[in-house]
Amino acid sequence: MERQWVKLKVNGKERQLFIKPNELLLNVLRDELGLMGAKYGCGLGECAACTVLVNGQPMLACLILAVTMEGQEITTVEGMGDYDRLHPLQQSFLDHGAVQCGFCTPGMLLTAQALLAENPDPSEEEIRDYLRGNLCRCTGYAAIVRAVKEVKHPA
């Protein structure tokens, strides 16, 4: 299979990749770009641990061929904030003890960010509905929902 050039934007930066058509966005992000935030969970679209934002919308990087992302804008959890400047949602997750093992956290944060962009003041029910596909095997849902509900000035 021949490699081909794909141009896309990842966390605000233009990137050019030379990849095979069967490479998954998740592996390209992790292995080629060193962005380890998105996680491999089930590989089948059941767990949403691999969630990234594509043009602001949550999608599953384990079910996306990276070649199809030409010209698209990808946001991973690394694009939300960093240790010195946490995103308000990241701060809220810390404040509410919403991170246990941390495996689902990047997907939870990005999905919650998309929710708040659509609906700045969601009810608990709306939060649970929007996040329903993101599985937390620590079952820390109550704290996660509280963290989203009580986030301070969401971006």
Partner: peptide
């Protein structure tokens, strides 16, 4: 059947 990767090879045609 490792779901971490897509092992299958194919020609990609973007319409």
């Amino acid at each position: 059947t490792d779901t971490r990767v897509l092992a299958a090879e194919f020609q990609y045609l973007e319409a």
